Computed example of a mutant assay.
Amino acid sequence: MTVPHGLSPAQAAALTRRVTALSVATAAILVTMKAAVWTVSGSTALLASMADSALDLAASLTTFFAVRYAHAPPDAEHRFGHGKAEAFASLMQGGLVFASAALVAREAIGNLIDPQPIRQEGWAVAVMAVSIVLTLLLVAAQTRVLKKTASVAVSGDRAHYFSDLASNLIALAGIGAAAWFGIEGFDAVAALAVAALLLWGAIGVFREASGQLMDRELSDEARAEIVRLVTADATLTDVHQLRTRASGPFVHIQMHVDLDPDLTLEAAHRSIVAAEKRILERFPAADILIHADPRGRAEPHGGAFAEVHT
């Protein structure tokens, strides 16, 4: 699971807000164009692509609002913030992709049984070419944002548009083959390939969102970096019970560390605060909790999460 790289929560929020607004605008343009051309062309592949874009518009709108809610500060009812709103948005996106795949497959099978000729194929090809260009630009923008943030909602949205990119290419090939080479049924076969790609993309979205909702640990590399930052001070040793999880744009980190039992409370406090600051330099959106144990004298911790040295 990835984590933000050096951005404050405010900076990450600004990036995700901009890219989700761009996603909504792109989807709206694509739906409008494809709907207009489909009415005159009758292409099943274009209809499949339009249905996909329409559901992507709904998903993008969900993401648009989810990332804004996820960055809202903690309140009395949500002491750990609202970050998991992004994961819920991704689950909704995955469900919409599955629905899109079902609609596409239904139309494709119907067209295989009763093929319909494509009309105005030049317009159909043109709109698919424009769709490919716009989708490429959006995916490039989303990729840049994801290099700087760990937004699972934006990641899910990008997965949609990666599928769109592939589906647009397949639809373009299907329209061209059916209209210019007279290969009957290829238009519907292309639509079935689009449905298969959508299903594969939805599985990836579900997997990433479920990782956050189930409080999956951060990557081994991130955990090792946290331990390194804490133990950079020789007074802090034996980091154990390290627990991490991502919640939308935020990271929650808690651990136990051993300190010299002869340190004063004030000195121990200074060491722990300094360790927290080192972690925050690397993980600016982190919520950190460090429990101090007297070295050599600590009692094992029980409860629902009995102590395990990891």
Results as ranks from 00 to 15, higher is better:
residue 264 T to N: 08
residue 30 L to E: 10
residue 146 L to I: 07
residue 261 P to S: 03
residue 179 A to E: 05
residue 167 S to H: 00
residue 24 V to A: 04
residue 307 E to T: 07
residue 50 M to E: 15
residue 147 K to H: 14
residue 149 T to L: 04
residue 115 P to F: 09
residue 149 T to I: 04
residue 63 T to F: 04
residue 11 Q to V: 01
residue 71 H to Q: 03
residue 235 T to G: 15
residue 243 R to Q: 12
residue 69 Y to L: 10
residue 7 L to A: 05
residue 52 D to K: 01
residue 271 S to Q: 15
residue 109 I to N: 04
residue 251 V to S: 01
residue 73 P to A: 10
residue 133 V to L: 14
residue 265 L to T: 09
residue 236 L to Q: 07
residue 267 A to D: 15
residue 9 P to T: 02
residue 84 K to F: 05
residue 28 A to D: 12
residue 194 V to N: 10
residue 175 I to W: 01
residue 304 A to P: 06
residue 165 L to K: 03
residue 19 V to N: 07
residue 74 P to H: 01
residue 20 T to N: 06
residue 265 L to G: 00
residue 297 R to W: 12
residue 76 A to F: 10
residue 177 A to L: 15
residue 156 G to D: 00
residue 217 E to M: 13
residue 143 T to K: 14
residue 292 A to V: 11
residue 261 P to I: 00
residue 117 P to G: 03
residue 44 T to P: 01
residue 187 D to P: 01
residue 169 L to Y: 09
residue 160 H to Q: 13
residue 165 L to E: 00
residue 90 S to M: 11
residue 53 S to H: 13
residue 49 S to E: 14
residue 113 I to S: 05
residue 183 I to G: 03
residue 270 R to Q: 15
residue 203 I to A: 12
residue 83 G to D: 05
residue 307 E to M: 08
residue 274 A to Q: 14
residue 107 E to F: 10
residue 94 G to T: 02
residue 48 A to K: 03
residue 55 L to R: 08
residue 128 M to P: 00
residue 119 R to G: 11
residue 221 E to C: 00
residue 304 A to V: 11
residue 38 W to V: 14
residue 190 A to M: 02
residue 117 P to T: 00
residue 96 L to N: 11
residue 284 P to G: 07
residue 143 T to E: 13
residue 309 H to S: 12
residue 88 F to L: 13
residue 47 L to W: 12
residue 48 A to I: 07
residue 2 T to F: 02
residue 160 H to C: 14
residue 95 G to C: 06
residue 29 I to S: 10
residue 55 L to H: 03
residue 266 E to A: 08
residue 148 K to C: 01
residue 175 I to R: 05
residue 237 T to E: 10
residue 203 I to Q: 07
residue 288 I to A: 10
residue 69 Y to E: 11
residue 217 E to V: 03
residue 32 T to P: 02
residue 172 L to W: 03
residue 287 D to F: 08
residue 190 A to S: 11
residue 280 L to I: 04
residue 23 S to A: 15
residue 305 F to S: 02
residue 22 L to E: 15
residue 38 W to G: 06
residue 266 E to C: 00
residue 118 I to H: 01
residue 253 I to H: 10
residue 38 W to T: 05
residue 29 I to V: 15
residue 88 F to Y: 09
residue 72 A to M: 09
residue 75 D to H: 08
residue 271 S to F: 05
residue 89 A to L: 05
residue 192 L to Y: 09
residue 123 W to P: 04
residue 60 S to C: 12
residue 87 A to H: 02
residue 163 S to G: 14
residue 292 A to G: 06
residue 28 A to K: 08
residue 78 H to M: 03
residue 305 F to G: 03
residue 247 S to D: 02
residue 273 V to A: 13
residue 35 A to Q: 13
residue 155 S to F: 03
residue 80 F to Y: 11
residue 67 V to A: 01
residue 39 T to I: 12
residue 183 I to Q: 09
residue 98 F to A: 10
residue 109 I to Q: 09
residue 237 T to R: 14
residue 138 L to I: 09
residue 6 G to M: 02
residue 199 L to N: 00
residue 62 T to V: 10
residue 129 A to L: 14
residue 183 I to E: 02
